[in-house]
Computed example of a mutant assay.
Amino acid sequence: MPQMAPLLWLYLYMFFLISLILFLVINYFIKPFEYIDSSVISTPATPQLNWKL
């Protein structure tokens, strides 16, 4: 029925808002991955070969 179309858009809009709020809340409470600090990893100035020639 054509008169039901505004209710459909209202339900879609409410579903979008609820899912967006849920997504933002979940991302707020879940911590991101910790990045490895590159200053901790020390590589030698002259890399040595791991195999014998």
Rank of each mutant, 00 (worst) to 15 (best):
F15A: 15
D37E: 11
L7F: 13
A45H: 01
P47F: 00
P47T: 03
A5G: 02
L24M: 10
T46Y: 06
P47V: 02
I41Q: 08
T43R: 11
K31H: 07
V40F: 00
F23C: 10
D37P: 00
N50K: 13
I26W: 04
N27G: 02
N50I: 13
M4S: 09
Q48E: 13
T43F: 11
S39E: 12
A5F: 08
S19K: 01
S38N: 10
W51V: 08
I18F: 08
L22G: 15
A5K: 07
F16V: 05
V25A: 14
I30P: 00
Y13H: 10
L22V: 12
N27I: 03
T43Y: 11
M14A: 14
N50R: 15
L12W: 02
E34I: 04
P44C: 04
Q48D: 07
S42Q: 15
F15Q: 06
L22Y: 09
A45R: 03
P44Q: 02
T43H: 09
L10Y: 07
D37W: 00
L7N: 14
P2V: 10
S42V: 15
I41L: 14
L49T: 09
S39M: 05
Y35H: 07
S39F: 00
F15Y: 08
L49P: 03
F33D: 12
K31I: 03
I41D: 00
S38D: 13
S42H: 10
L53D: 13
D37L: 03
L7I: 15
P6Y: 01
L24I: 12
L24E: 05
Q3S: 15
L22M: 11
I26M: 06
Y13P: 01
W51N: 03
L10F: 10
Y35M: 07
P44E: 01
S19L: 06
F15H: 08
Y28I: 00
P2C: 05
L49G: 09
K52Y: 11
F29Y: 10
S38V: 11
F16L: 14
I41E: 04
Q3P: 01
F16E: 01
L8N: 01
L12V: 06
F29S: 02
P32D: 02
N27S: 09
I30D: 02
K31A: 09
L20S: 14
S42A: 09
V25E: 04
F23W: 12
F23K: 06
Y11W: 11
L22T: 15
L10W: 07
I18W: 07
L53W: 09
L49Q: 11
F33S: 14
M4H: 10
K52M: 07
S39W: 02
P32R: 01
Q3E: 15
Y13I: 07
M14W: 07
P6R: 01
L20R: 04
I26S: 06
Q48T: 13
V25Y: 10
L22H: 12
P2A: 09
L24T: 06
Y35F: 09
P6M: 03
L53N: 14
F23N: 07
